[in-house]
Every structure is written in structure tokens, then in C-alpha cells.
Design a protein around this nucleic acid. Structure first.
Lengths: 201, 201
DNA sequence: TAAAAAATATAACACTGTTAGCAAAATTAC
DNA sequence: GTAATTTTGCTAACAGTGTTATATTTTTTA
């Protein structure tokens, strides 16, 4: 008399199918085009069935965000355990992080809200040139006066910008967060000081 | 007989009104809720009028992206000119960048596709703790073996993560871009090396 | 076999961006 | 000053979206 069990099993199968098909659509067509209707079509059920398994669309996406962080953590752990010395571990972790991000773009974009409409536009904005020119010129000067005058200014510019954008972007997401305004500034100062130190070394 | 001129003037006024009202809506309700219908309502014209001034909604947003970069460039230039020495200029620019980002969130979020749905979720993901724990533990070890054993591991973790996320995020946007795979790795290695160097100083 | 409960579907609501087709106004030509 | 033409703007629709109230069908229980 395993009727309840059978039903439970079936329910889980449908839920799994929703996630599976959602992932399939996301990887082939992108997160932007993923819709409840498409999922319903793919699993060959009507739309409201999806809402018996997930509160709303966001909840489906959230599931993948969680899974993404779970996978990322695993990869970072592996990277850590591949080395003994902590500085080398930091190096390995960084590379693992990159590998995960570019090897699992669908996850990373969802996890951090990237890959959205304006992204391709960034590179089309003429005004951006002015922006990068300002910074590159300063970096060039700094390099010339440094102990390493052969450093690549373009490379350093990207590193510098990454520090800035990375911090802004992460801190903006985490706005409810446990990071105080004071600490934010400290983090920035510390990072920039580190960058400059490495630059003029 | 300035009839053509008058028409031209009127046309420009309407276009300006579209941008003005769009900005008003974005700043009070957020980019996500900005719609063509809302703009049409605000300027007291019908919907198709908007399409005689802009090809589509993206074109309206693009206008603000451009303006955002323009303002940012200006601020960075000012920061640069406020100092003489290039290292201090880099410092001032970094602070100006931050000030712009957090003082003009609407611009920054649009420029870099931030503030989108999944953003608030990031901090709600339990799986994230595991992720941060891995890295923090390594950083803690590195600090203990460094010449500066009193450094704040949490602060350093954020700096480290910012470097990673900043680079991933910028490079993913710029995917058509002029940055080769080779260079990407070089930039990463360089940044991480700089971070570690500053960490164990 | 009939009643109750669970599972599933249809159809609608309130939105979105975008556009085809038509009405009104303004301009030009006679 | 009237008629034809161009410009301007609006109505209404299309094709989507997420979400839900309301039925219907199916399954289980009595």
C-alpha cells in the first residue's frame, strides 16, 4: 500500500524535471529567455504545476544559485588541499575560482547577476575610452618612476580597475550586509595600498 | 519662418522630457520597474512617440550609461589633478571611483548591470558561508606566518575576493573584447601575486 | 458504486516591449 | 480661403511575461 510513497516519488520526479529542464533552457538559450511557460512546455505539464513545487520563478533561480555556491566551495576546497603552503593555496584558489567562473558561466552569471542586458553595451560605450585613458596615463607615470619600468600599463590598469569594481560590485550586492562603511573604506585603502606597493615595488 | 526650427526645438524638448522622466522613475523606483508605459504616462504622450525618439528601451538606458561614464571620467580627472605624485593620484582616483559608485548607485548599477534580481539573494545563500570559510581559513594561516600577524583576515578576504570577482565580472562583460585569454591569466597572476606580497609583506 | 480528496488544466489578470493602422492636426499648394 | 499633402500622434493590437482564481479531471476513500 505504498500509495503515499509513490505519490511522493512522483512529486520529486516532477520537481527534478523542472530544475533539469530549466537548466537545459538556461544553458542553451540563456537565463534571460527562461520562462515559466517554457519550463511547463518542456516538462509537459501545465503552468500552475510549477507553482506547486516552487513559490515563484525566483525560487527556481535561487536553487541554482545555491548549487553554484556549493560547487564553487567544493572546487576551492580541492584547490586548497592540492597545496601545503598557505600562499600557494591562495594562488591555487584564485585559479580555481577563475576556472569555475569561466567554465560555468551560467552559474556565475546567475550567482552574481551578471550577463544581463547592459553587459555587451559596456564595450560599446565610447565614453569609456576617456575613463580608461585617465587611469592608464597615471599608471604609466607610476610605472616610469618605479623600480620595474617595464611593467605593462594595460595589464596593471585592468588589475587596478578589477580591485575597484570587484569591491563596489560585491558591496552593493551585500547592502544589508555586515560590512560597515568604515570597514569598506579600510578594505579599499588596504587593497589599493597593496596594488601600489606591488606596482612600484 | 522658423517653423522647422520650432519643430526641431519641440522635438528636442520631448526627447529631453523622456530622459528626464526616465531618470526620475529610475531613481525613485529603480531600473527594474522602469517601463515605456510609465515614461509615456509621465511625459503625457502616447507610447509610440517614445519610439520616434529612441529605437527601443535599451537605447534609452544606453544614453544613461554613456552619461555615467562621462561623469565618472570627469570625477577621476579631478581626482588626478588634485595630486602631483602618481602614486597619490592612484589613491585619489580609487577614492573618487568609490565615491561615484556609491553616490550615484543608479548610474553605476546601470553601467555594470548590477542591482538586478539575484543581488539581494547573494547574502541569503547559506552555501556562501562554506565558500567564505574556505578562503578565510587559508588567509588566516597566511597571516599567521607573515610579518604582520595582526592583519584582519575578514578584511583581507574581502580584498582577495574583490580582486577575483572584479576581474571575472569585467572580463565577462567585455567578452568580445580585446583581452586575450593569455593576458587574462597574466592579469590574474599579477594581481594575486601583488595581494599575497602585500599580505605577507 | 458514490462521495471526498487530490492532481491537473483552462482561462484570465495585469503587466511588459513593440508596431501596424488610423485619425487629427499642421503645413503647403493652388 | 479652400483643398491636397505631409507630419504628428493616438488607438488598438500582437506576442510575450509572471502569477492565480476557477474549473475539471483523475484518483483515492468510504
Amino acid at each position: 500500500m505504498g500509495v503515499a510513497e509513490r505519490k511522493q516519488r512522483h512529486k520529486e520526479q516532477v520537481k527534478a524535471a523542472i530544475l533539469e529542464k530549466a537548466w537545459q533552457i538556461a544553458t542553451t538559450e540563456g537565463w534571460q529567455t527562461l520562462s515559466i511557460r517554457k519550463i511547463a512546455d518542456a516538462i509537459e505539464y501545465s503552468i500552475p504545476v510549477i507553482y506547486t513545487h516552487f513559490e515563484n520563478k525566483e525560487a527556481i533561480l535561487f536553487e541554482f544559485t545555491r548549487k553554484g555556491f556549493s560547487i564553487l566551495s567544493e572546487r576551492l576546497k580541492e584547490a586548497k588541499e592540492s597545496r601545503q603552503e598557505s600562499c600557494q593555496q591562495l594562488d591555487a584558489i584564485a585559479k580555481a575560482y577563475f576556472k569555475f567562473a569561466f567554465g560555468n558561466k551560467e552559474y556565475y552569471q546567475l550567482m552574481f547577476g551578471l550577463g544581463m542586458p547592459p553587459c555587451e553595451t559596456v564595450s560599446r560605450v565610447a565614453e569609456m575610452k576617456e575613463f580608461s585613458d585617465v587611469i592608464i596615463s597615471v599608471i604609466q607615470s607610476a610605472i616610469q618612476g618605479s623600480k620595474n619600468p617595464d611593467a605593462d600599463a594595460f595589464l596593471k590598469f585592468h588589475a587596478y580597475w578589477s580591485i575597484l569594481h570587484g569591491q563596489v560590485s560585491l558591496q552593493m550586492m551585500n547592502n544589508n550586509g555586515n560590512v560597515s562603511n568604515d570597514l569598506k573604506e579600510k578594505i579599499l585603502e588596504d587593497s589599493i595600498a597593496g596594488f601600489i606597493k606591488a606596482l612600484v615595488s
